[in-house]
Design a protein around this nucleic acid. Sequence first.
DNA 1: AGCCAGGCTAAGA
DNA 2: TCTTAGCATGGC
Length: 278
Amino acid sequence: MLRLHVTDFNLQHTLECGQAFRWRREEKGYVGVVGDSVWKVSQKDSTLTVESDPPASEEEVIHYFSLSSDLRKILTPLQGDSVLAPAIKEFWGLRILRQDPWECLASYIFSSFNNVSRISTLVENLSGCFGTPVGVNGLGQYTFPTAERLASLTPKDLRPIRPGFRDRYLLETAREVAEGKFDLEKLHRIKAEEAKKTLLTLPGVGEKVADCVLLFAYGRMDAFPIDVWVERALRKLYFHGRRRTFRKMQHFARKKFRGAAGYAQEYLYAYVRKHLET
DNA sequence: AGCCAGGCTAAGA
DNA sequence: TCTTAGCATGGC
């Protein structure tokens, strides 16, 4: 068991903001599968407790929760914005995770034209059917299936999951990754623009999904995913209720939020999901 | 019951 | 470059 002293960190906001799909609430804390390990995490004040099986290192925990980044320093410039200020205050401590690129990519392929609760169900069922069991006392915990595993499947095999039209997007993308035609590791090393362009070549991956992967798996803080909620937020809070084209919204966000665009997006998203429902 | 969801693709202006 | 239809499915 690990105990970490954490500052500027809120576990609930971080895990419930919808960036990751495999965490579920337990009596006290959350249970999820990270890589090949089951994690049980809880927070009391500035103490983060992590029980994992097989055990994860402190470095892995720090990496996953982005605990080494200086959140205060990142958010301070954003707080000058009168729209973001209350959102940042309310969700203070929300950190952008560093998820596994393949799991993140596959999960967000499932996200298109879908709602959060069903995305979670899809990801959970996919893992249950095609992942491998993990954790001795985790009971019914499964890893997220590898690209290789999924590449061996047909849409028919996915039927029990009921992913709808997204089935072939997932399988074709899995094939490209498994066959080495698409190098997820390389995305760490190339420029953001290049990385996005590369992601856009994958079936089922458009601007929004690409931005999510860049932000939630690769820590590219200049990525600004625009979904229906963020579009609504921008329109209502920045554009006086008027529509803007996707490209204009992107340009606006990049210019306004710079290298903290990813965090601006997440706090906006959390804020509108809570206050702008319907 | 019926609307809508962390969009993408293809086609057409 | 922008707009639009169609999409499988189930949550609410």
